[in-house]
Design a protein around this nucleic acid. Sequence first.
DNA 1: GCAAATTAATGATTTATTCAAG
DNA 2: CTTGAATAAATCATTAATTTGC
Lengths: 212, 212
Amino acid sequence: MGSMKVHQLARAFWEHEPSLTLGCKRLRPLAPKLANTDSVSSFDLKSFIRPESGPRKIGSSDEKKDSPQVETHPGGTRWNPTQEQIGILEMLYRGGMRTPNAQQIEQITAQLGRYGKIEGKNVFYWFQNHKARERQKQKRNSLGLSHSLRTSSPITAISLDSRVEVERDQDSPYKRKCRSWAFEYLDLEESRSCREEGDRTLELFPLHPEGR
Amino acid sequence: MGSMKVHQLARAFWEHEPSLTLGCKRLRPLAPKLANTDSVSSFDLKSFIRPESGPRKIGSSDEKKDSPQVETHPGGTRWNPTQEQIGILEMLYRGGMRTPNAQQIEQITAQLGRYGKIEGKNVFYWFQNHKARERQKQKRNSLGLSHSLRTSSPITAISLDSRVEVERDQDSPYKRKCRSWAFEYLDLEESRSCREEGDRTLELFPLHPEGR
DNA sequence: GCAAATTAATGATTTATTCAAG
DNA sequence: CTTGAATAAATCATTAATTTGC
């Protein structure tokens, strides 16, 4: 899974799980009127609370996933960039790109896709991580070497492009950007195990694994 | 603490407008023109980016936007939740939902969509923000009032489910999760040329040059 | 009363941290 | 250890409340 493009996965399912009761309110199928009435209506809380407990219509006939695409080999969860992809990404990074916008990501993804499976988010994350880690590295260096050069920007060249946002300080402060995005609800496997358990109520709360 | 927020109400018009994309300023309503002529990036990227005619998403020229209603205000601003939407979201939050996954977001969005325009990202952000701000508030309180814990007593009462004290930090610190998502590459403009009116109240936001 | 000016909330982004696959 | 992925914290930006001057 990992992900394929499954773009069109529509919001087809809306299966109700008529069993558990969340103990909340009683729900009443509210008239679909979108009237902005004041009356708040109740609504199906229960079906929401529990994440992946739903029976995912397994093998249920048709699937609109068009992707005949290769499946991502089992276990292949995360993106595994190829040399070419990395090379190009680094090139872009060196070229000054730091936080590509949606359009740019789209193009980059399209291109890198020729060298291997890749999604927009991979590109996005790559830049985020690379940027952060370069900064980290730099900081570490400057600390070790104490003073000296103020790490001027390496930037340079390139960009004939006039638009990209390279103009600001390379790394630093915030800047407003507008990236438009949307979730593409694919169903994710994940469901690491919880499959049928019964007592849903308890599951409501993530039994905190006492992380940190 | 005094001021409660009544939030808006009655905002009768709010038509659908699938084109998200946020315009920054008030641009003429509807100028679906995506004259993207402006060079999108260029730099080396170009060498391998094939002129893809353009990312088309919307495409449809004519929307069903026949609303007799005045078009007024550009639909593309930020999400402005209705009372019902907020109510439901809070209910879910109190119910324990903290970081809905893609599937859940999809459902929630679908439901809330009955009360007004809304997208998946709005739901996602709402939870992020609400969670963060509740935590913040709580921290502030605990700091200001020092202890005093409810010591004793009636217990946490709670009626049955009591998802209970959301107050608690039962939130999990990080948790591994797998949210599947994808960008929706619409084009966006960076145009942050702010108001043409000139600068007023610049002091409002102490634009400190170098944050951290 | 109402509209501009302020202020308070809160939606949307970006950066910093953390987790875990390989 | 490296680094993709995901969450939390910080911050920016816009809108609704609220206040203020007429």
